[in-house]
Design a protein around this nucleic acid. Structure first.
Lengths: 196, 196
DNA sequence: CCGAGTCGAGACGCAACCGTTCCGTCTCGT
DNA sequence: ACGAGACGGAACGGTTGCGTCTCGACTCGG
């Protein structure tokens, strides 16, 4: 994936530093030192700290793959949640992901990478799961896909990514049940009160 | 709430800086300058940047109050989600909250404040909603409260806090329907595959 | 076997920020 | 009216990180 040993060492060091101190306090000096490299080796590859982060994050983000088709919505959802839980439990990822998401709120270039590369990949997989379920007849054709995607990502990210509570297989099974119920839940016809 | 005009100005400036540059790059100099105050005025009140942030965050966190009892689970949930959406839509909060949550993963003192003060307040309200629903008979007595809390917080935080998508009242209504469905959803008896 | 290019290491000037200290001013309570 | 104390502002020496640059050592293609 990475061209040579030095680039790989710098990449690994950058992610470790990113997890240790966060994007805001990330320094090129610390990355180089951790990689056992000189600062020149870094600047020979990227013009700035931000370019380095964006490039390396993009590489690992686009690496993820695989799309499960277990034959049932619940099976697909469980597979999707398990993969997400595993990723978010990774000691480096669990610190880096929330940090970059927060940085994205004030750094447009970082936000673009996260939404287009990282988010886009997972989003496509999630959308495919819902589409398959609709074609199977497991979900009504007018299912709200946007809300469905929120339920595929939100509760898991909240518990594992934010509260840092581990997710054992049993709990994942229960979560999958409830996520499926939420996605399949019909919408009540409630008048939205207008506020003059 | 705040003792005097200077302290209030420093507090406001700190939250603005926090939203602008994040916790990692927050500097006492910038806060003082934005507040139109000298650095000494800050150090006369708090011994360090971290103490300042923790103290000020604690103050605004413990300020929030009110617990709705609309008579139905769905009404309570909608009220809870609306309050959360409003808070997360606030231009300062929407940047500060994700940033502090990320910082909490590597700063135990910050994490403690967020969990005990901020999270604790909202958590109590959410737990009260579920308990009331159980007493009304709207939920079974063996409802999984932990998972329920995840659904009350996760999807909303994901969409509004992370993706920064606004939540109009109609969407909030739909979200409330699905959150209630998830909380009320029964758990299937699936054997958890053991991995030897 | 030799020169081009990269390597780790680190010094460079510059800028920012740390926490402290000292101004001269202004606002109180007495 | 006066003194205590907090005020905004600025400067202090020290530390850190920036991005550039130079060094001698190494590797490798020709």
């Amino acid at each position: 994936m990475l061209q040579d040993a030095v680039t790989e060492a710098i990449g690994a060091a950058m992610f470790e530093e990113l997890a240790a101190v966060g994007y805001g306090k990330l320094t090129v000096e610390a990355v180089a030192k951790r990689a056992g490299a000189g600062k020149a080796a870094v600047y020979r590859r990227w013009p700035s700290k931000q370019a380095m982060v964006i490039d390396l994050v993009t590489r690992v983000a686009t690496t993820t793959a695989d799309a499960p088709d277990t034959g049932t919505l619940r099976g697909d959802v469980l597979e999707f949640l398990s993969a997400g839980a595993k990723a978010l439990t990774h000691p480096l990822m669990s610190r880096i992901v929330p940090d970059l998401l927060a940085e994205g709120s004030r750094n447009p270039e970082v936000a673009a990478i996260l939404l287009e590369q990282v988010g886009g990949t997972r989003r496509k997989k999630a959308a495919a799961i819902l589409h398959r379920a609709i074609q199977r007849g497991e979900l009504p054709v007018d299912t709200d896909l946007e809300l469905g995607l929120d339920f595929l990502a939100g509760p898991l990210y909240w518990r594992v990514g934010i509260l840092r509570d581990p997710m054992d297989p049993e709990r994942l099974n229960h979560l999958a049940d409830k996520v499926v119920a939420a996605i399949a839940a019909p919408i009540s016809n409630v008048e939205v009160p207008s506020r003059p």
